[in-house]
Design a protein around this nucleic acid. Structure first.
Lengths: 277, 277
DNA sequence: TTGACAAATGACTCAATAGTCACTATTATA
DNA sequence: TATAATAGTGACTATTGAGTCATTTGTCAA
């Protein structure tokens, strides 16, 4: 639906500028040039709108980063590519990133908090796999601490260009953070954040993605898809989900077929997780 | 006035739990067990309340940290003491620290933003002086970048115990961050944040503390003060402010006299800045 | 042209909130 | 005890904002 997208775009601008609470539905509809009623045809409530925004962009950002990490073959490049992709994604979706930072510790809504935790954990897992791949046993004791350093870098340095309009030299920023991360990873001996601590603070949110959820999303995508290759790949992947008979190489290839399509990023991310690629 | 303090304490709790916008004056007065009118006898508005809270706690926190940095003679201890004092202060004032993190990028109020920027800059200057003292020319190119790393550590690791109730081992945390800071300070070669960048993003807030402002505060303190030594020291410092005749050593001594008194922390901080100790 | 259906409107309701003010209670003083 | 000064009250106003719904407008096929 076109209206939904329009509302999301315009609301994003206002939320980024004034914050979620401080933006009224009235303002959103005026900014869209539609009536108040029209808003409620697309979204059941203002809350549903912000949740939709979070899902839409977090899926995009998470799968962007994950894709880069999984597809950078050269370990020497990996960290650089990770930071580059991360800040590039934040920069591309800067209005959303602003909202994310502004509202991340806000407590309006149970569902909101759950979503935030969920995506937070996804990103944490991506960083963890990256650390394990790059440094292996070297960071056995320190890897959970390193995750927090990296997340700290991500938020601190984002703020510079998001809220202070600092010019963003993505290459320099990434190189600078690669150096820092390598230094910390190679020489840290006193971690503060241990696996126990992570376990301890982990909220009880068992939000594993189930096969049923993936099936639901894959069916939606199949219905929307026009391109024949992608569509067929999705259909085959769906069958594989229901009845796993295809060899891993073929599944990998099918995933490859869809993973560059803009509308398939999320589903391809979920499938990669599910099939453990 | 007693009421003012009661309101500040109770409001702090509610703001920390639900956020500033989401807490109504009604709720605050109910939580205090007073009427709505009584609130407006102590504060002109809800905004004035949050500004008072910020001033009260940021003065405390800033002067705590500054005092430690200035009074740790042993350079080997300095960084440890800095982190220890910082997180200790955040932990002691954890309700306030929560508000600070939750609302720091919020944009309700021009005055609010100015205050935040102001205290931000103060802390930034403390960190800068610490870095220059410890590493000198070694960090000439990287010191502004290091400030951002340290601030990143401060906010990331605070969140762990502020919002996730992680147990706080202050000693371990400080040691861990000392190691990290040393690593980064000694080996970073590619800074992202340069002095130019800092200059570029610095908002035009020329909020220098004037002699008049200091005089006003010092007079308040003199009026409130009971202890004879502290009171006399304040009076002499006030005279020195109006007519600088005393030798530096004496001024230093007078400052020393008052700097441990809980009600003089802020004024002693301001005076140290003014007399350039 | 008609009539059936969907899309869109915006005046309205209801709840909540910041801030006011005429009044009351309390305390200090003479 | 009487009086004045101060502290405290809570019903009230004015305003805003989320969400609703009776009505209008637009778009088809027949």
């Amino acid at each position: 639906m076109m209206k939904k997208q329009l509302i999301m775009e315009k609301a994003l601008e206002l939320f980024a500028k004034h914050g979620f609470e401080a933006t009224s539905v009235q303002q959103i509809t005026e900014h869209c040039g539609i009536s108040k009623g029209a808003f409620y045809l697309s979204f059941k409530s203002k809350d549903e709108l912000i949740l939709a925004l979070i899902d839409h962009f977090m899926m995009q950002i998470t799968s962007d980063i994950d894709y880069i990490v999984r597809n950078t073959k050269d370990d020497k490049e990996l960290l650089y590519q990770f930071y580059y992709a991360t800040f590039d994604s934040f920069h591309k979706h800067s209005d959303f990133a602003k909202i994310l930072i502004k509202e991340q510790t806000q407590t309006f809504n149970q569902e909101f908090m759950l979503k935030m935790h969920y995506y937070n954990r996804l990103i944490q897992n991506i960083i963890l796999s990256l650390l394990e791949r790059l440094y292996g046993d070297e960071v056995k004791q320190t890897k959970f601490d390193l995750i927090y350093c990296i997340k700290g870098f991500m938020s601190t340095y984002s703020e510079l260009f998001l809220f202070y309009n600092a010019p963003l030299d993505l290459d320099l920023l990434s190189k600078s953070l690669v150096e820092k991360t390598n230094l910390l990873a190679r020489h840290t001996t006193i971690p503060f954040v241990s696996q126990e601590l992570i376990q301890m603070i982990k909220q009880p949110l068992n939000e594993e993605v189930t096969k049923e959820q993936i099936l639901k999303i894959i069916e939606q995508r199949i219905a929307e898809m026009d391109e024949p290759i992608e569509k067929e790949s999705l259909i085959l992947l769906k069958q594989q989900l229901l009845d796993p008979t295809l060899p891993r190489a073929i599944v990998k290839g099918l995933l490859e077929n869809i993973s560059n399509h803009p509308h398939c990023k999320w589903i391809s991310y979920l499938l990669r997780c599910y099939f453990e690629f």
